[in-house]
Nucleic acid binder design. Structure first.
Length: 451
RNA sequence: GUGGGCGUGGCCUAGUUGGCUAAGGCGUCAGAUUGUGGCUCUGAAGAUCGUGGGUUCGAAUCCCAUCGUCCACCCCA
């Protein structure tokens, strides 16, 4: 028989158990945080009709989507969670209560060249709030609060939620009569941090065909930095020249005004005029979150406000605001940087019960007794040498091994061995559970430990 | 999609002016008192040198093709 060499495709992440446990921990934090803000869980199919996923048509989506035929069906794998959400809302809008808040943590697929931190299959953790006809700006102010809670929940401190407003940008380009070129300009300006202002200027002049004066105006505009109050006051100087701009500024003020009420510290939030993000459908506030100590990895969470979620599927006007956390990338980078908390328990069980008698019944009962006290307990079922049983406990990384042999059974007790210290005690099942619980008592250990 | 680097046991690497049975480390497995893991010691298994073709007396090493992979660009989480 031919052996097929096992391999995992490039751009797909596969983890060993201890890492997977840490990953799941992050997912749990996301779920509980999202749920705590009243978002409902949603799951949609990984595969959809290609027509639906490609409704928007053209561009990168068409190039990157995994598309295939099965019989006569033209199918595709979802490349994000927003388009499936649009379909879902369009399909069920008569049954949903608006504003509709949902979260979804699922895999998405993109057939592009994989690179460090860039995957072909990866998890997105999305939240969106969809309004029926209207959606108040207050929703846009709440989003950073949720991002903040999630990242703090992971154990991160050095991150920054950067915010801009698309209306400010389009309004500003209207003032310069550059409305048609705004897409190219924004894409260029977005690279400011990466390539520097001289390079940006060169591209604006040569590739975008701007005049020296226009380029100068733009560079001066995106150079506006400082505290939120300082940036906003600098922006006030541009008012009265574009209705769009003025409206964008008003929205930006509304978002920043409620930050402290929502509990977001100023140090984790910044108005940044270079942010453009997802050029096609965002129409108002846009968000991008970066790790301050690892700017090279780019954005780990981004999103914004859009006016018409489901326009391709129904006539109804459904404005919304949402964000997406690139969980796979975030995890990959944190792991690579060695920031995953080594203190976080990553064994599949709290204790491993090792039966040492021919009759396994007492051990089975013991395992169940300890398990019923709320602990994760694995029963070792193999008939191997004691040495090998211990080696297994060691390799699994379980903090405790519970031994049950003739002696213990005769005394009505079991031997509880702390694998880290080597200390061993003879205890009853209840005492054992209590002992282990006290030793672990680790419910609030963060996943990430920043240095 | 465009441009560049690299492919040697499961993993990391040595070996490239072509030359004897391809070397080492990690890991795996088995032993060193069959009720005690990590450490140490001993031993074992495991590679058609990515694949196909070519040059040559002889190819891991040179040439061509192909696949894979990584990096940059594009774009993005």
């Amino acid at each position: 028989m031919d052996i097929i060499k096992p391999r995992t495709l490039s751009g797909f992440m596969e983890l060993l158990p201890d890492k997977q446990i840490r990953f799941e921990k992050m997912v749990e934090i996301l779920r509980s945080t999202y749920a705590s803000y009243g978002f409902a869980p949603l799951d949609t199919p990984a595969i959809e009709d290609a027509q639906i996923l490609l409704a928007k048509g053209g561009g990168e989506t068409e190039k990157q989507i995994y598309r295939f035929q099965k019989g006569d069906s033209d199918l595709a794998l979802r490349f994000d969670l927003t388009v499936p959400l649009a379909k879902y809302v369009a399909l069920h809008c008569n049954d949903l209560a608006f504003p509709f808040r949902r979260f979804q943590i699922s895999k998405v697929y993109r057939g592009e060249r994989a690179q460090r931190g860039r995957f072909r299959e990866f998890y997105q953790a999305d939240i969106d709030i969809i309004g029926d006809g209207k959606l108040d700006v207050l929703n846009e102010a709440e989003i950073p609060a949720i991002i903040y809670k999630v990242f703090k929940g992971f154990g991160l401190n050095r991150f920054q939620i950067r915010v801009n407003n698309r209306k400010i940008l389009t309004g500003f380009y209207e003032m310069l009569n550059l409305h048609e070129k705004s897409g190219d300009i924004m894409r260029t300006v977005d690279k400011l941090d990466k390539i520097g202002s001289d390079k940006v200027k060169t591209i604006l002049l040569e590739d975008c065909g701007l005049t020296e004066e226009q380029a100068g105006e733009i560079l001066r505009f995106i150079a506006i930095r400082g505290t939120n109050a300082e940036v906003i006051s600098a922006l006030e100087g541009y008012t009265g020249r574009s209705e769009t701009f003025d409206q964008g500024l008003a929205e930006l003020k509304a978002v920043t005004a409620n930050l402290s009420a929502f509990g977001v510290p100023e140090e984790n939030f910044a108005v940044d005029l270079t942010i453009a993000r997802g050029l096609d459908y965002y129409t108002g506030t846009v968000y991008e979150t970066t790790l301050l100590d690892h700017p090279e990895i780019g954005s780990v969470c981004s999103g914004g406000r859009y006016d018409n979620l489901a326009g391709y599927y129904i006539e109804k006007q459904l404005p919304g605001v949402g964000i997406s956390i690139g969980l796979t990338r975030l995890f990959y980078v944190l792991d690579e940087q060695g920031l995953l908390n080594p203190e976080l328990p990553s064994a599949p069980a709290d204790a491993l019960v090792l039966p040492m008698t021919q009759d396994a019944a007492p051990a089975i009962a013991l395992a169940e007794a300890v398990r019923s006290q709320g602990l994760k307990v694995q029963l070792y079922c193999e008939q191997k040498k004691f040495k090998q049983k211990m080696a297994y406990a060691d390799k699994l990384g379980v903090p405790f091994a519970i031994l049950l042999g003739e002696d213990e059974i005769a005394e009505g007790k079991c031997s509880v061995k702390d694998m880290r210290s080597g200390q061993q005690l003879k205890l009853t099942a209840e005492e054992a559970a209590e002992h282990i619980k006290n030793a672990l008592h680790c419910s609030n250990i963060p996943v990430i430990l920043e240095r």
